[in-house]
């Protein structure tokens, strides 16, 4: 849920990159950090203390000020993919405004994807977030590898759910921005009317996207 501090004139949005272990969530963020080079993009904070059970997530913040002076901060998080870090995942997922599910395209990872997606559904319901309403995009990463699920198969499975799907190769920066942009668009749509982004804060969807994605790509 969006954090809005009226006195401070500040809105904080939380986007979460979810998915199984080693599906490329951090790689997505590393590339976003690399490609989006605009004033307001913060440093990538990596809490990659590998041997610590509970900590393992990354945070990439973005910041801009609207024409009316409202400060908008978008914090993009990754969650630890490993099954045992469920408590951390839940803590990070709390009050999420949008979710990008990063799936591993390899056929042998299909089961892990399913387990992670089920875990996402379960945690969202625990945290009181309606999966039908929360902005959600799915990225099928690692398209450059062999033995991957075909695009046709992915579309036949996901198109009926109305969840946008993206093919990506995050390691080479492909599909990373598209996934992020799509998630931003959906997030804008979901909060615009409630927080009067366009009417009160004078932020159009185009402005919202461009402020958060302008870079050298």
């Amino acid at each position: 849920m969006i954090e809005y501090d009226e006195a401070e004139q500040k809105m904080v949005l939380k986007l979460v990159y979810y998915g199984p272990a080693l599906s490329g969530k951090t790689t997505n963020l590393l590339n976003l950090h690399e490609m989006i080079d605009v004033k307001g993009r913060g440093d990538l904070m990596m809490l990659d203390t590998k041997d610590d059970r509970t900590i393992f997530f990354d945070l990439l913040p973005f910041y801009f000020v609207t024409p009316t002076g409202t400060k908008i901060k978008v914090k993009v998080y990754t969650v630890p993919g490993h099954v045992k870090h469920d408590a951390t995942r839940k803590a990070v997922l709390t009050r999420a405004d949008g979710i990008a599910f990063i799936a591993d395209s390899q056929i042998k990872e299909a089961h892990n994807n399913a387990v992670s997606f089920e875990n996402l559904e379960k945690n969202l319901s625990v945290l009181g977030i309606d999966i039908e309403k929360v902005p959600l995009v799915i990225q099928f990463n690692k398209r450059d590898l062999k033995d991957i699920v075909s695009e046709a198969e992915i579309h036949s499975m996901w198109d009926k759910t109305n969840i946008p799907t993206f093919m990506a190769c995050a390691l080479h920066g492909k599909g990373v921005i598209e996934t992020y942009k799509s998630l931003l668009e959906m997030t804008y749509d979901s909060i615009n009317s409630r927080y009067q982004l366009q009417t009160k804060h004078k932020v159009t969807k185009e402005m919202f996207i461009s402020k958060l994605t302008v870079g050298k790509f």
Binding site: L47, T54, I55, F57, A87, T88, K90, A91, T94
Partner: peptide, 11 residues
């Protein structure tokens, strides 16, 4: 701070 927060949340 993030470490503490995530620890506390998880705990």
């Amino acid at each position: 701070l993030l470490t503490t927060e995530i620890h506390t949340s998880a705990i």
